[in-house]
Amino acid sequence: MQKIETLFVDLSDWFIAWLQSLGVPLAWADAILLLIQFLCIVGIILANITILIWLERKVSGFIQQRPGPNRLGPHGVFQTVADALKLLTKEDIIPSKTDRLIFITAPILFMTISVMLYIVLPMGKDMQVVDLNVGLFFFISLGSLTTIALLMGGWGSNNKWSLLGAMRSVAQMISYEIPLALSLMGVVMITGSLRLSDIVAAQDNVWFILLQPIAFITYFIAATAELNRGPFDMPEAEQELTAGAYTEYSGMRYALFFLAEYTNLVAVSALLSTLFLGGWQGPWLPSWLWIIIKTYLVMFLFMWVKWTFPRIRMDHLMAFSWKVLIPVTLVNIVATGFGLYIFKGIGG
C-alpha cells in the first residue's frame, strides 16, 4: 500500500536523481520537473473535462428519468470526443467590427487563469506543484480575474447584447466575490495559516465541514454564482434578451470558453473538498485518489443543484448576495472568533 501512496512523489524524486546523473545542475532539474508537473496538470484538466461534460449530460439525464447519451461507445462515453471534434471542425468566425486583439485574447486569458488555479491545489500527500504559504489568497485573487476575461469577451465583440450580457454576469460575479472570500475566513482563522497543506493537515481528526457548516453552504452558493452555473446562469439563460458574453464566439474559441468554465468548476470543487472535506485525508485509499473522489462528489452536488432549481431573477440575485450572504458570512466569522476564543481559553 505504501508504494502506491507515494507513487508520484517517488517518481519525481527518481526523475530528479536521473537528471542529476546526466550532469544537469539541481536548479535546472527542478525547472524541468516543474514543466513536467505543469504538463501533467494540463493533462489532468483535459481528462477531467471530457469526463465532466459526459457526466453532466448523464446526471441531467438520470435526474430526468432518461438514460442520457448512450449511442457513442458504451454508455455514450465518446460523446464528449464527438462534441470536441464538432467544435473543432466548426467555422471560427471573427466578426469584422470587433476589437480583434481583445476578442482573441479573452478566451485565452480565461483559460490560462483557470489553469493557474491548479498550482496551489494539493493533489495528494505533499503532491503540490508549488506549496505557497499564501495559497488560499492566491486562489481567491486569481479566481476574481476571470471576471475581467468575461468582460473583455463581452465588450470586445462589439455587440449590444453581448455587452449587456457581459455587464450582467460581471455584476453577478463581483457581488458574489465578497461572500466567497468571507466564507473562507472561518477556515483560515481555525488553522491560522493560508497554506493549503496546513489547512489539510489541521483537518486530520475533524473535517472543517463539521466546524464550519454555514461557511460550507455560503461558499457553495457563492461558488455556483461565480461559475455562472445552477440557479444563477443569467447570461446563458435569456439568450435572446441579453445574449450572454459568448454570442459572437464560434468554433474553437467558443469551445475554449466552455472548457475554461469546466476547468473553473473542477478547481473550485477541488478547493471545496480541500478546505471542508479534509483534502487528501482518507483511511485506506491512497491520498491522491481521495481528493479525486471528494471533488467528483462535490461536482455531483453542483450538477444536482443545477438540474433542480429554476433561474433566479437578476434583482433577487443581487439582493440575495448583498442582503443575505454577506451578513451571514460576517456573523459566521464573529461566531468562529468567539468559538476560537472559548476553545483557546479552555485549552489553556
Binding site: 446526471v59 438520470f62 435526474i63 430526468q64 428519468q65 432518461r66 438514460p67 444536482w304 438540474w307 433542480t308
Partner: peptide, 11 residues
C-alpha cells in the same frame, strides 16, 4: 430529483 436519479428510466 435524487429519488428519480436512482429510479428506473422510462424512455
Amino acid at each position: 430529483t435524487l429519488k428519480y436519479f436512482f429510479s428506473k428510466k422510462i424512455t
